[in-house]
């Protein structure tokens, strides 16, 4: 066997079993010592945002600097929309704004004022998957699934614009969405199949 002085493997192992804490004193806190400040409340600068999310009219107060993704995830608890790069560089946060794909992490929530937003949750018909979602399951257009809501929304945006897109149009239309698992061949297959499926029905 090859004894390496310190190999990566050993290192992991060491971390697994050998981290020594020198005198970590953990005291159980009584309820009195629990740190509690005021629950986050909207500041004076908050602005009313009225828009439609997944066909439901919504009005809430948002901070001007909040992105649409922040509001969807934190205020509306629509966590299907993922934030991966938070810089408009990956597409995981893709939602539809008046039917067009946009990066929700890279726009202010206030830009959705008076507009209609559709998220991955809004594609569902109750518990039933949308045909694009079905295609992604059937053709395994995902691995870890974290970029998947964005991929599905990008595919849906292509089909809204053109119900009969060619393969090149699909590739271009899906080019704003990264997948680090690189499930791209099946993502493409899923989007193509979704188009075919929608055209049949």
């Amino acid at each position: 066997m090859s004894p390496k002085d310190i190999s990566r493997r050993k290192f992991i192992k060491n971390l697994g079993g050998g981290v020594v804490g020198a005198g970590v004193a953990i005291q159980t806190l009584s309820a009195k010592t629990r740190k509690e400040s005021k629950p986050p409340s909207k500041s004076d600068s908050a602005v009313a945002l009225t828009f439609t999310v997944n066909k439901k009219p919504i009005t809430l107060l948002v901070e001007p600097e909040s992105t649409l993704a922040d509001v969807l995830r934190n205020d509306l608890k629509l966590t299907g929309t993922k934030v991966v790069c938070n810089h408009g560089e990956c597409g995981a946060c893709t939602v539809l704004l008046d039917g067009r794909a946009v990066y929700s992490c890279h726009m202010l929530a206030l830009d959705a004022q008076g507009k209609s937003v559709t998220t991955i949750e809004g594609l569902m018909d109750g518990e039933k998957l949308h045909p694009v979602q079905e295609a992604f399951v059937e053709h395994d257009g995902l691995q870890c699934g974290f970029c998947t809501p964005g991929q599905v929304m990008a595919a849906e945006a292509i089909l809204i614009k053109n119900p009969k897109p060619g393969k090149e149009e699909i590739i271009e239309g899906m080019s704003g969405n990264l997948c680090r698992c690189a499930a791209y061949p099946n993502i493409l297959k899923s989007a193509v199949a979704a188009a075919e499926k929608l055209n049949k029905s």
Binding site: R73, K77, L78, T79, G80, T81, K82, V83, T119, I120, E121, M124, L129, Q133, E134, F136, V137, E138, D140, L142, G145, F146, T148, P149, V152
Partner: peptide, 21 residues
């Protein structure tokens, strides 16, 4: 065989550590 967790992932209902609140 299609993934049994496919539904959760395409529907946005899969809860990742990032989503826990």
């Amino acid at each position: 065989v299609s993934r049994i967790d496919g539904y959760d992932k395409v529907s946005g209902t899969a809860v990742y550590t990032f989503d826990i609140n």
